[in-house]
Simulated scan of single mutants.
Amino acid sequence: MAKKNRILQQIKRYIILLIGSIIYAAGLEIFLVPNNIIDGGVVGIAIMASHLTHLPLGVFLIVVNMPFVYLGYKQIGMTFTLSTIFAIVSLSYWSNIFLPIPGLTNDLFLASVFGGIIIGIGVGLIVRYGGSLDGTEIVAILVDQRTSFSVGEIILVINLFILSAAGLVFGWDRAMYSLVAYFIASKVIDITIEGLDESKAAIVVSDYGEAISDAIRARLGRSVTVLHGEGGYTGNTKNILYVVITRLEISKFKSLIEDIDENAFVTINDVHDVMGGSFKKKAIH
């Protein structure tokens, strides 16, 4: 049974990677490329190389990415590498399929907005299911291990160079529209990966922990983990509550705590993924 589930999960992974590649290719060939607007990273380099050499974009998507895929295999592992190769080859194929289709708009702002949204959805699906289309992320991970810069900072610097190069190749107005598309795509990627119903982890320290725990279960339908701690200053024993809620439940969560203990110490942080437990359970009322 476990083996069957793993096979089904792998099939699901590659179906989603295929769908993500198709969506991404559509955003590129129907909105961005016809208007000389680029995406960041390796895809941006491939678009400029295709424009300068008049060779198909799909060729450069594979050629430019291959060294980075090799690095990914060495540093991250086989599953990531296979998923990435599949996504890149699929993107190359579908970009050639969409190539004859004329662009839907000549308006640069509309092209950058809708192109950014569509490629953001495509990349988000691919990343969410363990693949990648951008070798610069792998470079950023390697540089991050050897410097004090974060992965996000390194990717930003790399993309600033790439978008600056777009200004030399396509003109500075196209480079600025490319920046708009890149910004929109990055936000849509986050939404696609994390979902609109973003999760939050809350920690509550209160002398009324049992009452708050009961209220959370009754009013939000969420399970609560009780951790046993000790006040660093007073030395008193404290019950610490840990619960995962959605972004939409934050207001109700704060309200129920204030009703019981307005002096409770509460922290709420972003959570990027949730597995198991009863998190998906709906609120009771």
Rank of each mutant, 00 (worst) to 15 (best):
I119A: 08
F98H: 15
I121M: 14
N65K: 04
V59L: 15
I76G: 14
V169F: 10
I284E: 15
D214P: 01
F170L: 14
K280N: 15
F253A: 09
V151S: 03
A264R: 00
N106P: 10
S50T: 03
T192D: 13
T147D: 13
I88P: 01
V180E: 04
T147R: 05
I138T: 07
L18V: 04
V42S: 11
I284Q: 13
G209R: 02
K282T: 05
N96C: 05
M48I: 12
V42Q: 03
I121G: 00
V42A: 12
L241G: 12
T136D: 13
Q145T: 03
S199F: 00
F98W: 10
K281G: 15
F253S: 11
I16C: 01
E249F: 07
L220C: 09
I121L: 13
G27H: 03
Y233S: 10
A26P: 09
S199G: 14
L82E: 11
G124L: 01
L125Q: 12
N65Q: 13
K280D: 14
F253Y: 12
V63Q: 01
T147I: 03
P102D: 15
H51D: 13
I19R: 02
S178I: 07
G77L: 04
G41E: 06
F68N: 10
S164P: 04
A264L: 11
A202L: 07
Y14N: 10
Y73P: 13
G72Y: 04
V42E: 04
Q145I: 02
L18T: 12
A218N: 13
F109T: 13
S21F: 08
R6T: 02
F31E: 10
E194N: 14
G221A: 09
I119E: 08
F60C: 01
N5G: 11
L99A: 15
A264S: 05
G72V: 01
F114E: 08
A166L: 03
G135W: 07
Y242M: 08
K252W: 04
D207K: 11
G131T: 11
N5V: 09
I260N: 04
A26H: 00
G27L: 11
A283W: 06
V243E: 01
F265D: 03
K74E: 08
L55Q: 15
A165V: 11
L32S: 11
S95C: 14
V33Y: 11
H51L: 00
I154G: 02
L163I: 14
Q10G: 02
D270Y: 03
W94E: 08
H228E: 15
M275L: 12
K187H: 07
N106E: 09
S95I: 05
E198S: 13
D197E: 14
E249Q: 12
G20P: 05
R128H: 06
H54C: 00
V169G: 00
L156H: 07
I88M: 01
V205N: 08
S186H: 06
V157R: 03
G44W: 05
E137V: 12
I97P: 06
V266T: 12
F80M: 07
V123R: 05
S21L: 07
D261L: 00
G77W: 07
V43T: 14
